[in-house]
């Protein structure tokens, strides 16, 4: 997904780290990774450790980190948009206008990454970066622990109990699409994008699924 960006910028002190939030394990991510023919890091995160550390709620989200290891843009949507919510569910296609807008938004995001790497543009000052961080609540902290235990239980022959913990996790942290969708996917492959997913997306109403980055 990021290969052309990486190829273009790798000689300018730039690295891409793509992390698969994939509780089923590496074999589920592998076909996509091989297809991508990427030369940047492709990591597998079966426990969603990155989501825990960076307080992430969906994929794709990205964090920009500078040469000193400092966060210069907090977690935000990485190149996706809500146009998919208007797609024709029978044909699974978006209108040509929506497709064009989606592509333009993605292009604008990639241009912003490019500008950051070459000129430093879009890196937020510390106070602005701090203000834009999502807060971890005690409920979110508990949800992470339940999710962690749920993944372990599933891997160790206690699928039913694991499901229960993952559903409890999702209930404690309803804003996390990653928790809900991963729990659904472990329950049944494809369920994460099935009718229950669409119902949950519709219930958002005016709220975004992919909040646009504030570039």
């Amino acid at each position: 997904m990021w290969q052309s960006l990486y190829a273009e910028l790798k000689d300018k002190g730039f690295m891409v780290v793509a992390v698969a939030e994939e509780s089923r394990g590496a074999q589920h991510a592998r076909p996509w990774i091989e297809e991508a023919k990427s030369s940047y890091w492709q990591l597998i995160d079966t426990e969603h450790r990155l989501s825990d550390l960076y307080n992430l709620v969906n994929v794709p989200q990205a964090v920009w980190i500078d040469e000193q290891g400092r966060i210069v843009r907090p977690p935000e949507t990485a190149g996706s948009t809500d146009h998919f919510r208007r797609m024709d569910l029978k044909t699974r296609t978006m209108s040509p206008e929506d497709q064009a807008e989606r592509l333009a938004a993605r292009q604008a995001y990639l241009d912003a990454v490019r500008a950051w790497v070459t000129t430093g543009k879009h890196a937020l000052p510390a106070d602005a970066a701090r203000a834009a961080l999502p807060r971890v609540t005690p409920e979110i902290a508990e949800a992470r622990a339940r999710f962690r235990l749920g993944v372990w239980l599933r891997d160790n022959g206690h699928a039913t109990e694991g499901d229960r913990q993952m559903n409890a996790a999702s209930g404690l942290h309803p804003d996390s699409w990653s928790m809900w969708r991963q729990a659904a996917d472990l329950d049944e492959v494809g369920k994460a994008s099935g009718p229950e997913f669409w119902k949950r997306v519709q219930a958002l109403g005016d709220r975004p699924y992919y909040p646009p980055p504030k570039l």
């Binding site: 780290v17 991510a29 890091w41 990591l43 980190i65 040469e67 659904a184």
Partner: peptide
């Protein structure tokens, strides 16, 4: 953090100090 790559080789974010890092999530589901 340290996470394995697809061939199980552990990779640590701080090894990349000195570079700008675009850290992005994705999933197959």
């Amino acid at each position: 953090f340290t996470l394995p790559d697809v061939d199980s080789k552990p990779r640590t974010l701080s090894e990349l100090r000195g570079k700008k890092v675009f850290l992005a999530t994705w999933a197959s589901w």
